[in-house]
């Protein structure tokens, strides 16, 4: 059974040591620049000069390439084909096949979009690979994010695998009583109904118990919360965050100004 839902890879690196908020700003900054920049080559430069160096620095290049090949490139490729073929942009017609008549403009548009998606998913992949969810939430809570919100995010990461395991148990229990899970689509869809009842109602009962359990540990206490682990926030972090904000503003301004 999977213990939790998290991409985090524990390594010793300069990227891992950064403050989680700096890393979040970095990831968002890369996304903003790639989407706001009017040039179609910006995403390529970002991949070459920001994403790949960061993955090297964070010692997660292998995991990143893995995610790239398995998830990011296939998704972006699919997106590119669909948009290139079906985006009705006026312009130089490349070829005509039945009702399909892609233009040079639609292909360029699709290409720019797909590469932006690649940059977005890439930068967040590296963010998630190098940031422990708990550190991120602790840091954000310290900066004023409501504790309840952080709890929902973190507990979801842990509870979803638990619910999957429970669903498996219920399926096994129902199958042992003759539930059909292997025949036609409609029969199988119908067999979901006896699964949903126990899973949903069981979870609702659990929610109350869990609410009592965390309440018994002062979850909604009005006192100012403290945290067990201190999250480093150095001057370097502040510098990184401010420069990124400047870069985002400059890109935004250039976008408005240039177009």
């Amino acid at each position: 059974m999977q213990e939790r839902l998290s991409f985090y890879k524990k390594r010793e690196s300069a990227v891992h040591r950064l403050n989680p908020l700096s890393k979040l700003t970095l990831a968002l900054g890369i996304v903003f620049v790639s989407f706001l920049s009017p040039y179609y080559w910006t995403p390529h430069l970002l991949i070459l000069f920001a994403v790949i160096p960061l993955s090297l620095l964070g010692k997660v290049l292998r995991e990143y390439i893995n995610a790239m090949l398995r998830l990011i490139l296939p998704t972006a490729g699919f997106l590119f084909i669909m948009q290139a073929l079906f985006q009705p942009l006026e312009g130089v017609e490349l070829f005509r096949f039945g009702f399909l008549h892609p233009t040079q403009e639609s292909v360029l548009f699709a290409f720019a979009n797909a590469t932006r998606i690649v940059v977005m998913v890439s930068s967040f992949t590296i963010f998630l690979l190098t940031t422990h969810p708990n550190e991120l939430m602790t840091d954000l809570t310290r900066r004023g994010l409501p504790g309840q919100f952080a709890y929902v995010i973190i507990s979801t990461l842990q509870i979803i695998p638990q619910m999957q395991a429970k669903a498996q148990t219920i399926i096994a229990a129902q199958r042992s009583r003759g539930l059909d899970t292997e025949s036609t689509f409609f029969k199988r869809a119908g067999s979901l109904i006896p699964l949903v009842g126990p899973l949903v109602f069981g979870s609702l009962v659990e929610v109350e118990e869990r609410a009592i359990a965390i309440e018994a540990r002062g979850f909604t206490s009005t006192r100012v919360k403290t945290s067990l682990n201190s999250i480093p926030d150095t001057n370097k972090d502040k510098l990184i965050r401010w420069s990124l904000i400047v870069i985002i503003i400059v890109t935004l301004a250039s976008r408005i100004w240039l177009s």
Partner: peptide
């Protein structure tokens, strides 16, 4: 139910036990 008493907010036993202390604002 021991399972439902685990907060789900923490990744290690040590952090789990400290959860209540964090909530009531005990100094680090």
């Amino acid at each position: 139910n021991p399972f439902n008493q685990i907060s789900g907010a923490k990744f290690t036993v040590f952090e789990e036990i400290a959860f209540g202390l964090e909530n009531i604002g005990v100094p680090r």
